[in-house]
Design a protein around this nucleic acid. Sequence first.
RNA 1: GGCCCCUUAGUUUAAUGGAUAAAACAGGAGACUUCUAAGCUUCUGAUGCGGGUUCGAUUCCUGCAGGGGCCA
Length: 551
Amino acid sequence: MIEKRVKESIQTALKKLGIHSIEPKVEYPADLSHGDFSSNVAMVASQEAKVNPKELAEKIVAELGAIEGIEKIEAVSPGFINFYLSRRYFVDVVKSIDDEWGEGQSLKGKKILVEYAQPNLFKPFHVGHLLNTAIGESLSRIAQFAGASVVNISYPSDISLGVAKAVWSILKNKKENELSINTMGEAYADGTKQYEDSKETKEEIDDINVALNSQKEGDVWNVYQKGRELNLNYFKTIAKRLGSEFAGMFFESESGVIGKQIVLDNTPGVFEKSEGAVIFKGEEYGLHTRVFITSKDLPVYESKDIGLLKLKFEKYNPDISIVVTDIEQKQYFEVIKKAATLINKTWGENSLYWQHGRLRFEGGKVSSRYGNVPLAEDLIDQVKSIVSKKQSRGDENVSEHVAIAALKYAFLRSSSGKNVIFDFEKSISVEGDSGPYLQYSYARAKSVLEKAGDVKKAPELTQELAPELIPEFERLLPRFPSVVERAAQEYEPHYVTTYLTELAGAFNSWYGQERIIDAEYEAYKLALTRAFALTMKNGLWLLGIEAPERM
RNA sequence: GGCCCCUUAGUUUAAUGGAUAAAACAGGAGACUUCUAAGCUUCUGAUGCGGGUUCGAUUCCUGCAGGGGCCA
């Protein structure tokens, strides 16, 4: 790669100047007028060399000599060295861009498990799940693009107090023969309310919870099984609608049993008994002390997560097991990770608990059927109706993909860990920096290419190119693979989002000012347009966003 | 109370210890009416407060203020 060549050349130059201790860094200047690469070595080395930075930069430049692919090197104050790629280099990149453009090797040979979406069966799939799914899917795709072998898994919560609440309400209202996603959603809302309101009901629901955990045959179990099946299918449907599929699923009902046994096997040792419960003394490691098995002998989330680790590592033996969760669980998972490490070193060390920000609701209300959290599907439909109005073609499929793009973009644009302000009016944009903006620029490029007879391959480009005509978006194109690599290394999809937005902006700006078909340099401009379209298509794929050919 | 996270234009977000802090929305002005106007051009506008480290701090350390979270 060219960055490596630049780095090595600097290193050689430094040695000639008698500077040995400094590892030069090459970076992308934020401002393209500062070149395609730049280095700050002169400023870093100036003290050791006892020369002022600007002078040192000039000396280094003088020692550098020619670097293949670099046309111009200049030293500027306060001491940066800027490198400009040659016209020829860009031509070669544009010609080389194909369907695999952006794929890398940085995670080659690694087996990565990505666990996300985490539905709660019997509870509605809401906007929080949507956020989690968008991020998990993108992390998974980015890892795949970086060369890893990735398995997506989901871990539905199929046994919990929430499930017991819904089952109780179904039985109470004799709805067992008319089960549907809607009746179960209502049952969950009803059960939750009654649980708070009536002490008797609370006891009845707690009993159901115990019965479910012991997996006893009977009415409770039968209703539960039927509802579980329905919910699971519903989950698969909505995941597919969002572009996600899961190769494997583990359930709390299985992890609970296994986890409980592991915890008991490690008591005393890792865990200890306290007032009838089994706890992990996190305090001893600067973490929270947490209960793993209650005094009623029920395994709680903690033991379930331990059981899940055994299931995961026995079945897949991953190099990295990523779990995508909400940041409010950060300290919880620190405890799990510590306890897991003590039980089985690999479980802890190969696990990455990755947190995204919390959703904070502000501004206008989004209609919601249950409680105050909008359901994922209601939200999609609401955006879809806005999108449909803007669309002249009336293509249902396109409206669907544009609506989902708008939502996913809102969740993938900012860096991880920070809270995501969810204001329907402001966050879900279809104009400006938005998912549809990216899709629109892609559709535009495709439209031009189609009109020109779809340029499958970049034409032979030679002397006809004007070296001074390197549009900004063309200069951004070669950066795509390193953007993907960085996103993969830091598990940060937003780098891709930011890059694509910048690229699309630069392309649109060029498009608005230049004529492509029937203009000077037509072949070159078409090749550029094609390169842009391929980059955008792959980039959108990484975000889990469809790229409609027309909109 | 203990611990964790956050604070950048009016708003929502970017920025690998570097160059003039980058966009979008909102607001002002404008162009073409020829390849998709969900677009383009242009103007206005920001690093919570105080110390420190550094040639250089939005970024690292520290104190304070404000907001959020986890545990009891």
